[in-house]
Amino acid sequence: MEKVVITEKKDGIFEVKLNRPDIRNAIDEDVMDQFKQFMTFVKSNKHVKAAVIIGEGQQAFCSGGDLSVFHQLKTKDEAYKMLSKMGTILYEWMMLPVPTFAVLNGTAVGGGCEIATACDFRIAKKGIKIGFIQGTLAITTGWGGASMLLKKLPYDKALTMLMSAKRYSSEEAFELGFVSKIVAENNFYQESYQYIRETIRSNKEVLRAYKQIKISEWEKGLKQKMMQEIDRCAELWEKEEHLQAVKQFLNS
């Protein structure tokens, strides 16, 4: 079974579906590599109008990193290698020349919330949970999520989401400004795509021109900030508090 399914929709919209519902669409090295391949495709194809990320199933958009793999990483260097790879991917996703949408079909926590942050728009199913829960594992965001979030939300609201490590309802996340649109469970997929198409009514050149305005701002230091954030997470990764928190989580 393919871990990532890429589908071309109408009007130049491409969907990237995380296809690991049995483990809540968690991210491993294979998924990272397929993300990279897709981004290469987008950058080289002018007919792409928008890119959409969604999770398979009804339960989870993405739970973050695949802990069955990543909990084997014990040292700072081991952690940094993995974290910086995904952090670079999310930076490049932010810099894609087309508008990007996270369609949160289910829970988006931890690294899944960081993936959603990298997108320009976040559409959430009513009643799901969203949160930067990394603090409960005694680490910070590890893929650059804090640096990205601080670019997109007012400072106090971003810091609240990060420091509280709380699981917010989609309605609460909407009030904070993290979620762009809430859609009811009935006809969720169809209504989400209706919102996407309404948002990108302009032609491709106009969409890319507007996106480039923001990219030009992000190019000035964002990647360096993300890598510094990731380095700090890697330092915390090898500490006993994190290793014990992960062990407790896996045994719960």
Rank of each mutant, 00 (worst) to 15 (best):
V52L: 04
S170E: 07
L104H: 04
G106F: 03
A118D: 03
G64L: 08
F121I: 10
I130W: 01
G142C: 10
Y155N: 10
I139E: 05
C113L: 12
V52H: 03
K181L: 06
A102V: 05
I89C: 06
K85P: 06
E56R: 08
F121P: 05
T140L: 15
M161K: 06
E114L: 04
V179G: 00
A138E: 13
E185I: 09
A138N: 14
F61I: 13
E114Q: 10
L90S: 00
F132A: 07
L162H: 00
F132G: 03
S147P: 09
N186L: 15
V98H: 01
K157G: 03
R167T: 07
N187I: 02
F188T: 07
S170N: 07
V52W: 02
V109E: 12
I139R: 06
G142S: 12
G87M: 04
L83S: 00
V179M: 07
S147L: 06
V69D: 12
G64M: 10
W143C: 04
G87H: 02
M148Q: 12
V103C: 02
F132I: 09
A184T: 12
L153N: 01
L73H: 11
L96A: 00
Q58H: 13
E175W: 07
T88G: 08
G177I: 04
C113M: 15
G111E: 05
E56G: 05
E185T: 14
S63V: 13
G135M: 09
V69M: 11
Y189G: 08
S169H: 09
T75Q: 13
L73M: 14
T117M: 06
T136N: 14
K166T: 06
M95Y: 10
K81N: 13
T140C: 14
G177A: 07
S147D: 10
K152D: 08
M161A: 02
D156E: 14
A165N: 11
K81R: 14
V179H: 03
D66R: 10
T136G: 01
T160W: 07
A146K: 09
M95S: 09
E114F: 01
Y155A: 09
T136C: 09
G135Y: 10
A165C: 12
C62N: 13
Q134P: 09
L176Y: 08
Q59P: 01
Q134D: 14
E185K: 14
A118N: 09
I115N: 06
V103Q: 02
G112P: 11
G65H: 00
G135L: 08
I133L: 11
Q59M: 13
L159E: 15
N187F: 12
L90H: 05
E114N: 08
L162P: 02
Q134S: 11
G127V: 11
W143I: 02
K126D: 15
G110A: 14
A124F: 03
L149F: 07
S169Q: 08
V179Y: 02
C119F: 03
Y189E: 10
T160I: 05
G110N: 15
G57N: 10
S84A: 14
L162T: 06
K85H: 13
G145R: 03
T107F: 11
N187P: 03
G142R: 01
V109P: 01
L176E: 00
K125I: 04
T107E: 15
G110D: 10
L162V: 09
I53Y: 04
G111D: 04
F174I: 09
I128Y: 04
S164A: 11
